[in-house]
Design a protein around this nucleic acid. Structure first.
Lengths: 204, 204
DNA sequence: TAAAAATCGGCAAAAATTTGCCGACGGACG
DNA sequence: CGTCCGTCGGCAAATTTTTGCCGATTTTTA
């Protein structure tokens, strides 16, 4: 409904080889308060990704040069937790299956209903807000080497994410988290310290 | 091609409300060397699951009483890593998306091509052979854990994902993965064994 | 205000993971 | 052939993590 230009700039990377559609969607999303970066090919998309942090990627499954899946695959690797949403005109079941396997968040059908797109992104923004943070803090000390995130780092980032998410879900109740995650209290504690997780309150 | 009744008994739970189809598929799979348990409803399926350990579940998406998705959802609870394969006649994109979100391994289209089914299961067998072990050690043996997926399980699943992705990205080159993930060769090896990851090459 | 419920951290034993070293194997290549 | 390269696995030591136990504090609840 209300589209408020949030304080938190949620940045969406829109990838589509159809210039018109791309422009239209971008415009629409911008009006709705999203920050939008566009790309008309996978290559350009990667350039954009290097230039700045995006919070979600919306991409056409079928593009001239790079198949959308190959694109997603590379993306998955450099940005493990980055939400990807596909859309396509006549997607076959296997297409959808493969897309989801690559960790797609959703798969929309073309032509895209603006309402649906908006809802998808809004949900995403709400749900994945902190994920981006995790990525940013835990990943790549310097942004030069996008691909060289160590295994350990990624896993730790994920652990952190899980715990923080669960913590939030249970309104900061450690006890509930322990129960939900089936993790030893002591262990959870250790991890929180190690990963620098603080309850509800914040920095400083 | 050659289907050898393996020493390792891979047990498949086949769920379909169509008696004839169910029987036919079961027979076929048995001939191909799988151990098959059948159920014509979600309820029966759960009974079977309590009776014995199965390694994979193949289920129709649309069934009279329980919608396949609801079934999968319950299943996800009790068996977070248990591979589920769906099949359906006229699945919509959203259907597939939801199925995959619930962690479906694959989504086949009805009528099922025996060849495809067989291949799917064979791959599954190869890939998930050892995963069962992980599952067993990863979370409570008891079904008391009705609620959630344990922290450990989730992390393991993620580790598995990272490794498999990297492996795929580097066309199965362990050396490259070691370099990319900055992980000790020995460690990577251990994890692959523990998580049941096999290199691109495949079946027996 | 007292009792009950939640958190947190120190410590040390127990358990699990990681890593280095060594030898082996199969394939590609000169 | 003989070698080099990439992979694998056994073993044991080095490390890291997980857990249990105890007691101290803080927050809620009755």
């Amino acid at each position: 409904m209300t589209s408020k230009p949030d304080a938190a700039p949620f940045c969406v990377l829109l990838v589509d080889d159809d210039h018109d559609v791309l422009g239209a969607n971008a415009r629409y999303l911008r009006i709705e308060g999203f920050e939008v970066v566009v790309a008309n090919s996978a290559d350009v998309a990667f350039e954009r990704l290097h230039e700045r942090d995006v919070d979600a990627v919306i991409t056409d499954l079928i593009m001239p040069n790079t198949p959308g899946l190959a694109f997603a695959q590379k993306l998955r690797f450099s940005h493990p937790l980055l939400p990807i949403v596909f859309f396509s005109g006549h997607a076959s079941v296997p297409d959808v299956v493969n897309a989801m396997r690559l960790g797609a968040v959703d798969f929309l059908e073309k032509p895209i209903d603006p309402e649906v797109l908006l809802k998808t992104l809004t949900d995403l923004r709400d749900r994945y807000e902190r994920t981006a943070v995790v990525e940013r803090t835990a990943f790549m000390p310097d942004e030069t080497s996008a691909g060289t995130v160590s295994f350990r780092t990624r896993v730790l980032a994920y652990e952190k994410f899980i715990i923080e998410a669960s913590l939030e879900e249970h309104e900061g109740s450690v006890a509930k988290v322990i129960d939900a995650l089936k993790i030893n209290r002591r262990t959870l504690n250790e991890k929180m310290v190690r990963l620098g997780i603080r309850r509800s309150g914040d920095s400083a």
